[in-house]
Nucleic acid binder design. Sequence first.
RNA 1: GCUCCCUUCGUCUAGAGGCCUAGGACAUAGCCCUCUCAAGGCUGUAACACGGGUUCGAAUCCCGUAGGGAGCGCCA
Length: 463
Amino acid sequence: MVTRFAPSPTGELHLGNARTALFNQLLARRAGGRFLLRIEDTDSERSVDAHTRGLMADLRWLGIEWDAGPDREDGLGPYRQSQRGARYAQELAVLERTGAVYPCFCTALELSLSRRAQLAAGRPPRYAGTCRALTESERAARLAGGVSPTLRFRVPGGERIDFIDMVHGPQSFLSDDIGDFVVRRADGTAAFFFSNAVDDARMGVTLVLRGEDHLANTPRQLLILAALGLPTPAYGHVALLVGADGTPLSKRHGAASVRDYREQGYLPEAIANHLFRLGHSSAPHGLLTREEMAHAFDPAHLGRSPARFDEQQLKVWQKDAVHRLPAAAAREWLAPVLPAGLDEQSAAAFTAALLPNLLLPGDASPWVEIVFGAPPALEPEAAELVRAAGPGYFSAAAAAAARAGGDLPAIAGAVRAATGRKGADLYMPLRVALTGRAHGPELAPLLKAMPPGKARERLARFA
RNA sequence: GCUCCCUUCGUCUAGAGGCCUAGGACAUAGCCCUCUCAAGGCUGUAACACGGGUUCGAAUCCCGUAGGGAGCGCCA
């Protein structure tokens, strides 16, 4: 099995595209096949090289690696469409020779006028066929006039085009519903329907799993492939991803690209796991590794209805992924909010203490201040607890801290001996005196992360 | 406008005529555990868009309605 992901570098990696990339890679990996990355940059106006690099970086960050692509060429490339012009010219020449395509001299203005007129008349806005039956001399005359034509595919009349969609089942379209479409632009570059279909065939792609927006266009590609005598891949069209409000996912929803979430501190494993179950179901629950995903991915369980990219659900995965972060990776993830120049050991202790309570790195910022900064002011609730505990409580605590440093059991033990308190009565005053807050991470590891002497100093304030 | 696709708990989904008094996960509520939070354990609330058929029997098949989406580009 050979699958592919074929983005056009006109922006950042969209979550919906990231999902189709993930599905395709999983499909190939599970079957022991190959996964290709092809950059569809035939539109030089909108294609930006920086986006190609960004796309590849985001894909790799997400853990999606390709077997062949622009930076990993094999004999079937190049994997940038902008470099495949000569190949397209060859195929196009075949189509011209067989009369499957014809030059069209209509201007953009004529075409849009025609479209508008048809729409107004309650008809589908299809190409009217103006240039379809031009004679050789008429063509020569227009050519002489200096107009460079596009090439249109001559869609045969009265045919039925059938194919089986892997997710939607049997599909049937009428060729009479399809207007003649452009396969080569006036500037000589190949158009999407053509280059996309031809490349899939030439690169040996056997399964095209893509967004549902391509479903109704598939017959056009089948027509091209048939005219060229090229093999057709199997097709599958997954429903689009929508936002929490059910409308197509876009910037309006705050974030729609992988980059957006990456910059907020979301982990690739969290995003991949969320995407994995959107429009797809698999038996195992819980956070899956890449291997587990490849094993559990089931194309028979691809959904036909649009799935919502739900941030609340993403956060559940994120929490899980954060909790499972190995110590070194956790420190790196938290590095942006850690104080500059913090020693390795303190950073490790702080990270270990905070990790169970974090969703995003920014959540740790207040605690950086509490642990490493000046003694925190007490919240009203906290002040009340301190007052109720009284100076005796804190002189015992401070004395114990002076002896034992950041060892919570030692401090608590000393206070218990001095006051007879236990449970919440014993621990809460310590917590609020040390952190200023009634809520927070587990106290024992937090104390270990505090610079030496800080605990004693803070407890002594109330002695 | 025309063609096509879609519609099960809040969310992701299981479900291919009787196994469905519709299952699971997450979210949510309550309880337990507990120095707080988190984690964990237990219990609960919660859905077949609507209307007609077909059938002994329909979430599952057919028709229609409503709602959502896509395509009809010298964009991909």
